[in-house]
Nucleic acid binder design. Structure first.
Lengths: 248, 248
DNA sequence: GACAAAGAGAGAGCACCGCTCTCGTTCAAT
DNA sequence: ATTGAACGAGAGCGGTGCTCTCTCTTTGTC
């Protein structure tokens, strides 16, 4: 049962490879992640690395899973501290945690939410689980508010969405929200990812925003408004007015 | 004045290089864009290509500018056909044109709005102009509706944004919208880019949406709602009710 | 303890990449 | 006609992912 020296050495080498690969990813981006460079840092010839990693793609998958997991863990940890607070505060916490993690690990974020690495398609059986944790946490946040009757109604007639797909989500994820609720959950997610991505990738040019934090804070507030999240939790027996007064 | 045969040949070769590079970009993505492969298709040895293109990065810049220009031209052309229609229809047209173009040129879209190519930073003097055309068109659409008093009020207290940056935009771009209007313009843009990117990059997995077009259509509708765009243009002298009835 | 099997690393090699340099050739302006 | 610029070919440098063979060591078994 106790691991042989060879097994312990192998486990250590596997950890080292991922550690070195993460460092290379952080400094040079996904495209400059080279097995040969990892081998050099490991003090070993390039072909030796293939004893541990089947290919460069498999190394990418390992990093992908690690990135998804780390982001989700970060978000979960942040949410723990505000678990008893109102919907809006918890959403802000989720959004800010995503942005902070993305800024601290830009190459990893790019790997998760940027252009897919060409010629590489992630093996779904390993990545979908960790890859959907954050959005499921987010959907659960909205679901809780919806069930408690705390979501303000959508200001408009909701266009029909992909109803059968939404039905499948309600079934598989045990959601109760109607099409409008699921629809604006995706709207909020798209806006959140879009805002983080735009800031991180500098899509507005380097001189457009002197205060990107202020922009993101306002975007979070506006997204929370579109979700209908109230500042403080309302007692569920109090019916929502059809036209709610301004928040705050 | 009339071009010499050599000049005409050079111009033709330059066009050929860009054409071949675009084909390679479309099939293999930005990372697999290789000057050597372009040279092979051109029927020439690799070093000869360096007579026309200073480096691979310069070729990327050429493609980047071409992509931005083509997307903006596509959007402008689509908007021309609906120039006299209501705000919401024009916004739908803009959004659908972006999605359609992105689906027809996924590698090019990835080059514009995906992960920045590592080690390459676009020369701003060449790319910012074409790169901002679409979002400026979009901002102008919102601005027109705002000036005409056709924007529904934002359902919530607007959090303060990056006011000085917004001031600079109002000055440089001749906008009149308040912070809430500019803020939700960016919200809509982030959601739009986020929705297109998520669909194009398959961020929700291959089996999550059987009808991505329906999802996008609903997202467009929801984004239009958050923008406060009305279905039909209202006469500007009619004041907006503080709590507008459902659209449609 | 001897021995076969499996694991690990080294090294050579293949085909590809971006990019540089030199060398003849061809074209165009003087 | 001459001369300098433009052009293409070819060799070469260092880099990449990946495969193969070879040797040495560790491991489990008889």
């Amino acid at each position: 049962m106790s691991p042989t020296p060879r097994e312990r050495a192998r486990a250590q080498t596997e950890r080292d490879i991922i550690r070195i690969a993460r460092a290379h990813l952080a400094t040079g981006g996904a495209a400059s992640l080279s097995l040969r460079a990892v081998a050099r840092d490991l003090g070993v010839v390039s072909s030796a690395v293939y004893r541990y990693v089947r290919s460069r793609d498999e190394l990418l998958t390992l990093l992908l899973v690690e990135g998804y997991t780390e982001l989700a863990d970060t978000v979960d940890a942040a949410l723990e501290h505000v678990a008893d607070q109102d919907d809006r505060t918890r959403f802000y916490t989720l959004g800010n945690a995503m942005r902070e993690w993305a800024k601290s690990e830009p190459a990893m974020y790019a790997l998760l939410y940027g252009t897919p690495v060409p010629g590489y398609d992630a093996p779904g059986e390993q990545t979908t689980g960790p890859g959907t944790r954050v959005i499921l946490t987010f959907a659960d946040l909205v679901e809780q508010a919806y069930r408690a009757g705390r979501l303000a109604p959508w200001p408009g007639t909701t266009a029909p969405g992909p109803s059968s797909d939404y039905d499948a989500m309600r079934r598989d994820l045990v959601l109760t929200g109607d099409d409008a609720t699921i629809g604006r959950t995706f709207l909020a997610w798209h806006a959140l990812i879009g805002a983080v991505t735009a800031e991180l990738f500098g899509q507005f040019g380097p001189d457009t925003f002197s205060d990107p934090a202020a922009l993101f804070a306002q975007q979070l507030s506006l997204i929370a408004d579109t979700l209908g999240l109230a500042e403080a939790p309302l007692p569920p027996e109090q019916p929502q007015p059809a036209c709610r007064p301004p928040l705050g």
